[in-house]
């Protein structure tokens, strides 16, 4: 996720970078964006059931919020925790209704899953099929379990931090994650795992 960069700024942690940016240093923001943009985008995309236009809208809205309030950020928690908390709220604010519409379109998820399984190996490689199956299985998870699984995969936060981001207790978060992983293992064919 993080590219090795000889630039001194790239060695700085997120909190120092956002402080530098709030003092007017544009390059500090560029590094932060480079570090977090892709995983954050994927987190939004998965949460929005792969709806690209909605995900981009939320993604942009989130970063605009971060840019505007960079001076207000106080390093009580890590910047990354703050970033995902803001994103989560944006998703809740903007996307719930749209996601529900999208869910209607995916009412035949099980059919899609079956069709993916039935596709011939010679058309797609085994790995590509497994990846696609995993994405479809993730979309089938209940929202809270899906959120827990994606956050765990896309970020390097500890379980405590993830529980804080999702505004729940550690045990609840663990429970959600445990169920998510159990279901995914059950749903995916043996040759994928």
């Amino acid at each position: 996720m993080q590219k090795t960069n000889t630039n001194k700024d790239s060695q700085m942690n997120d909190e120092a970078l956002i402080a530098a940016y709030s003092d007017g240093k544009q390059s500090a923001f560029d590094i932060i964006y480079q570090r977090h943009s892709a995983p954050l985008y994927r987190f939004i995309l998965r949460q929005c059931n792969q709806n690209i236009s909605l995900s981009e809208e939320i993604f942009q809205d989130t970063w605009m919020n971060i840019i505007k309030n960079s001076k207000q950020f106080q390093a009580k928690s890590s910047f990354s925790t703050y970033l995902y908390q803001v994103t989560r709220h944006k998703i809740i604010d903007h996307a719930r209704k749209k996601i529900s519409h999208r869910e209607d379109e995916h009412s035949n998820d099980s059919d899609a899953l079956e069709s993916a399984k039935m596709e011939q190996p010679d058309e797609k490689t085994q790995l590509a099929i497994c990846i696609e199956l995993l994405q479809q299985c993730i979309q089938k998870l209940p929202d809270e379990q899906k959120e827990a699984f994606i956050l765990k995969q896309e970020t390097e936060h500890t379980l405590d931090e993830l529980a804080r981001i999702t505004q729940t207790t550690l045990e609840t978060f663990k429970s959600r994650l445990r169920y998510a992983m159990k279901k995914l293992r059950e749903w995916l064919p043996g040759e994928c795992l």
Partner: peptide
């Protein structure tokens, strides 16, 4: 499971949106 997920996690924000955000920043 993590490896399988990461191999499929290749999506990135479009250049267009990244440009907008960085300009605003």
């Amino acid at each position: 499971l993590s490896d399988l997920y990461r191999q499929g996690a290749t999506e990135k924000p479009s250049d267009n949106i990244s440009h907008k955000i960085l300009s605003a920043a």
